Amino acid sequence: MSKQIQVSGLDAYYGSHKAIEDVSMTIEPRSITAFIGPSGCGKSTFLRTLNRMHEVVPGARVEGKVLLDGEDLYDPDVEPVSVRRMIGMVFQRPNPFPTMSVYENVAAGLRLNGRIPKPELDDLVEDSLKGANLWNEVKNRLNEPGARLSGGQQQRLCIARAIAVKPEVLLMDEPCSALDPISTLAIEELMSKLKNEYTIVIVTHNMQQAARVSDRTAFFNLAAQGQPGKVIEMDETSRIFTSPSYQATRDYITGRFG
């Protein structure tokens, strides 16, 4: 069952540089939330704070709270690895494990949970590939390297790998930026299907994509170059794109800057 994320007063740093400042928001379960805004305003940084990937960068740290159904993900007793199992991530460029087969790419995360009997593993891999709308295209190619698939298929393989371990939340950082329009459409249709089971958060530079797939949109911006990024406003996507509350949002959406 997907879960609600509540963020309050979150600051993120790279060393002494504050990248984002005082971000507070609620991300609703079983919905798609889009983050939009110009490059360098902290969208991807903020996305990585949600599953504790930000702190993987040397010198990076976070202040504030991120609650997953009330549980503080930054509590000292919470293991970062367990957070990343609950909150999966799909990156900008498809990154299947290049030396592994299609089957092993999906099975890799499942094997971390302990030994699974082969028939059960087969079923889980098949279910995950079906969940990513990829099964029919690869069911006769399961032993081929994942890197041999097309770009769009590789990205769906990465989504299959992410959902195989049954996360609560799926984070997607520009998941279509390296894909052609047909593959992009396939990923967007998949997102719309997956939101019935998962809380999905997507960073995108594509305004049309945000308008097409998301239920709510947050607009990030910088007050000035070198200043930390902030959330200017967050609302229902239809409202953000038709009657935003701030001129900066309107200017960005209409292409006047960014």
Rank of each mutant, 00 (worst) to 15 (best):
Ser24Cys: 12
Ala164Glu: 07
Gly15Cys: 12
Ile116Met: 03
Tyr103Val: 06
Leu67Gln: 12
Gln4Glu: 15
Ala60Gln: 02
Ser31Trp: 14
Met53Arg: 09
Tyr14Asn: 13
Gly59Glu: 09
Val125Leu: 00
Asn95Pro: 01
Leu121Phe: 00
His17Asp: 14
Asn221Arg: 11
Asp75Gln: 05
Ile20Gly: 09
Val231Glu: 00
Arg148Met: 10
Ala60Ser: 12
Gly15Ile: 14
Phe219Thr: 09
Val203Gln: 04
Glu144Ala: 09
Tyr103Met: 07
Ser192Asp: 14
Met234Cys: 06
Arg141Met: 03
Pro29Ser: 15
Val57Thr: 14
Pro117Lys: 12
Glu189Gln: 14
Lys18His: 07
Ile116Tyr: 00
Cys41Gly: 14
Arg239Asp: 01
Arg161Ser: 10
Lys43Phe: 13
Leu170His: 11
Ser101Gln: 10
Leu194His: 09
Ile163Ala: 05
Arg85Gln: 07
Lys193Ser: 14
Thr199Cys: 06
Leu68Thr: 08
Lys195Trp: 07
Ser177Leu: 15
Val213Gln: 09
Asp22Glu: 12
Ile163Ser: 12
Ile232Trp: 05
Gly258Cys: 00
His17Asn: 15
Gln208Glu: 14
Gly70Tyr: 04
Gln154Gly: 05
Lys118Asp: 06
Phe257Cys: 00
Ile5Met: 15
Asp22Ser: 14
Thr99Tyr: 05
Ile20Val: 15
Lys118Pro: 01
Asp215Gln: 08
Gly229Thr: 03
Thr199Phe: 02
Asp235Ile: 04
Ile200Lys: 06
Leu179Ile: 10
Met53Trp: 04
Ile32Pro: 15
Gln247Thr: 11
Ser82Val: 07
Ala248Asp: 09
Ile253Arg: 02
Asp215Met: 07
Phe46Tyr: 12
Arg161Thr: 01
Leu110Asp: 00
Pro58Thr: 13
Ile253Thr: 05
Glu236Leu: 10
Ile5Gly: 11
Gly229Asp: 04
Val201Phe: 01
Gly64Glu: 10
Gly42Thr: 15
Ala107Leu: 02
Gln155Leu: 04
Gln155Trp: 01
Lys118Tyr: 01
Asp69Pro: 08
Tyr14Glu: 11
Leu67His: 12
Ile159Asp: 04
Leu222Ser: 05
Asp122Cys: 08
Gln154Asn: 08
Asp180His: 04
Thr184Ser: 14
Asp75Arg: 08
Gly255Ser: 00
Val90Trp: 06
Pro38Met: 15
Gly131Leu: 02
Thr184Glu: 14
Ser82Thr: 12
Ser31Phe: 15
Asn140Gln: 11
Met172Gln: 06
Pro38Phe: 13
Tyr198Met: 02
Asp180Gln: 09
His205Tyr: 03
Ala60Asp: 05
Leu112Gly: 06
Ala218Asn: 09
Ser2Leu: 01
Glu63Leu: 03
Arg250Tyr: 07
Leu112Trp: 11
Met53Leu: 15
Thr33Arg: 14
His17Gly: 12
Arg250Cys: 02
Ser2Pro: 13
Val201Gln: 05
Pro76Ala: 04
Asp123Ile: 07
Leu124Phe: 00
Ser82Trp: 07
Val81Lys: 05
Ala147Thr: 08
Arg141Glu: 01
Gly152Gln: 04
Asp77Glu: 13
Glu236Ile: 07
Arg239Leu: 05
Ala186Cys: 05
Leu179Gln: 10
Tyr103Arg: 03
Arg93Ile: 06
Asn196Val: 08
Gly9Glu: 15
Val62Trp: 02
